[in-house]
Design a protein around this nucleic acid. Structure first.
Lengths: 115, 115
DNA sequence: GACTTATATAACTGAATCGTTATATACTAA
DNA sequence: TTAGTATATAACGATTCAGTTATATAAGTC
């Protein structure tokens, strides 16, 4: 587990608001260890590309993910440098690895070879 | 710190949604150790009584607080029996004790003697 | 350059959220 | 019973949110 860096209540709220949506919470769980591109999210979540982009924008503007451009693709991964990273990882650790939604997403992760 | 009980992603979302509002997050911080009645919340937060009641209802329906009726008063405190309690306490531990909003609230807590 | 692919942004819609005021309920006290 | 106090609920309005479709941007390919 990470070191405990205390923050202001409003900082904590920024983090919580960003991940209080089920899609974004699962997105963060997925990028906790991996780097994923937008098209992979679109495949995994059954959702339009703009919807995914907008979720990623919220996560990014809260500082939770960082963006990596390679060619035409943009890869997203957890921003470990964020003040929110310790709290966030802590929250994510409460999600069981056998979570059905998470398993379903990861099952779809494999066949993607767009990037 | 509490023992780590893993939950489903949607359970975690229930907890996060409940405390992703700044008022409710601070409310939980306040009832983490104390039992407070509705009129005390109304005094501390500069907010109408119905607004406070509605926030408390949300916290209660998420299972985060429990209600204790004594006379005409209803006291609220953290529900330690909830599956969310470990995660919640963990989240609350990230809020610094010197948080200005929290200090301001606790400063108003003293003079209340309604119950 | 023209065309394709990946992603972002804009504009819109329906639903949810958070506050308000007004009213109902429940307990206390005279 | 009547009045007063504490709290909850109802109804409403403004704002935010999460999705959609349509369009713009940016990079890759021919």
């Amino acid at each position: 587990m990470e070191t405990l860096i205390r923050q202001s209540a409003s900082d904590v709220t920024v983090c919580l608001k960003a991940v209080s949506d089920p899609t974004r919470l699962l997105m963060m769980k997925l990028v906790e260890t991996n780097e994923l591109c937008v098209c992979q999210f679109v495949e995994m979540f059954d959702m339009s590309q703009p919807a995914i982009s907008q979720h990623l924008r919220k996560l990014k503007s809260a500082g939770l993910v960082k963006e990596n451009r390679r060619g035409q693709w943009r890869f997203y991964s957890m921003n470990q440098e964020s003040v929110h990273a310790p709290l966030l990882q802590n929250i994510l650790s409460y999600i069981e690895d056998a979570d059905p939604q998470l398993l379903a997403l990861r099952a779809k992760e494999m066949p993607v070879d767009c990037c």
